[in-house]
Computed example of a mutant assay.
Amino acid sequence: MNPLSVGVIMLSLLQDDTTAEEIKGIAYKASKSILIALVIIFFIGQYIFKFLGVSPDGLRVFGGLILLIMGINMVQGHGKKVNHSTKEQEAAGQREDISIVPLAIPVAVGPGLITTVLNMSVVAADWQHYLSGSVAIIICCVSSYFILGRMPYIKMRLGVNGLRVFNRIMGLVVGSLAAQMILAGVSKFL
């Protein structure tokens, strides 16, 4: 989850005269939507894959590849590849509420995050894993709310170059997580 990149996209979709209170409202609604989506994916995602006959190791390898591509793009400074079309972005600019679509889904909860949460779901074996995964999701969503709500201030303080440096550092983390997922999937398969 990279709320700074989501925040930059959020600011690009908003009008220049958007107040701080309106931004906090959008951040709250988007974070709540992200929380609901991630909890649903975490608790029932693995059952959907079992129903479809997809093995957890196949999910790890493919999900790792998706994350690896995202990590490489982030490290190279290509920025976030948005999961919505130009027409959807134009429609979002005309709508009053951008918090759920496209901000929460598909920008924040895109293929990379869905894959990561599904991988957490697959390795969860008992109630402690589900509890720790749920707590992690809640902490990430609360952090996302605070970051999105203060995005104008963060952008002003960090500047464009600061956001780019942070995005590249996050790319290293995402790439490392991807490599670990791929290795785990391949080693279990072999």
Rank of each mutant, 00 (worst) to 15 (best):
A91Q: 14
Q89V: 06
Y47D: 00
T116N: 07
I114W: 05
K80T: 12
S55P: 13
H129N: 14
L38V: 01
A108M: 05
L14I: 00
I23A: 05
E96K: 11
I44E: 11
V82Q: 07
V122Y: 14
I48M: 12
E90W: 02
A37G: 04
F62H: 07
V75L: 13
L52F: 15
G79Q: 03
L14N: 07
G133Q: 02
D17V: 03
I23T: 10
N119D: 09
F49I: 12
W127M: 14
Q89S: 12
G93R: 15
F62L: 14
L118A: 00
G112E: 01
I23N: 04
Y47V: 07
S132G: 08
A20M: 09
G63P: 02
A108N: 08
G58Q: 04
H129K: 13
K87Q: 15
I40V: 15
S121V: 13
T18E: 03
L68F: 13
Y47H: 09
L68M: 02
F49T: 05
G64M: 09
H84D: 07
P56K: 00
E90R: 11
K80W: 04
L131Y: 05
G133K: 09
L52V: 11
S85P: 12
V101K: 04
M74Q: 15
M70C: 10
V82H: 08
L35N: 03
Y130P: 06
V122F: 13
F43D: 05
S121D: 00
D17F: 02
I36W: 03
I34F: 10
S121A: 15
Y47F: 01
G112I: 09
A91S: 13
A108C: 10
G53T: 03
D16E: 14
H84C: 14
G77H: 12
I34E: 02
S134I: 07
Y28S: 15
L131P: 09
E21T: 14
K81G: 08
R60L: 13
E21C: 06
A37P: 04
I98T: 12
P106K: 04
V123H: 12
L67G: 08
D16A: 13
L14T: 00
H78I: 08
A91I: 15
I36Q: 03
W127G: 00
P111S: 15
G71K: 02
A136G: 15
F43V: 09
T115E: 09
P111M: 02
Q76G: 11
E88R: 04
L67K: 04
I137S: 03
L65Q: 05
T86S: 11
F62K: 09
R95L: 02
L67Q: 09
I48S: 03
S134Q: 08
V54Q: 07
G112V: 01
I26S: 11
S121M: 08
M70Q: 13
S121T: 01
I72L: 12
H129F: 01
F43N: 05
F42V: 05
A104L: 10
T86M: 07
I137V: 03
I69E: 09
M74A: 11
I100M: 10
L14Q: 06
K32G: 10
A124K: 07
L38N: 06
D16R: 11
P111G: 15
N73M: 12
I100K: 03
M70I: 15
F62V: 14
I36H: 01
E22Y: 07
V101R: 02
Q128M: 13
D57C: 08
K81Q: 14
E22A: 11
S99G: 10
I36V: 09
S121L: 01
Q76E: 09
D97V: 08
Q15I: 00
P102Q: 07
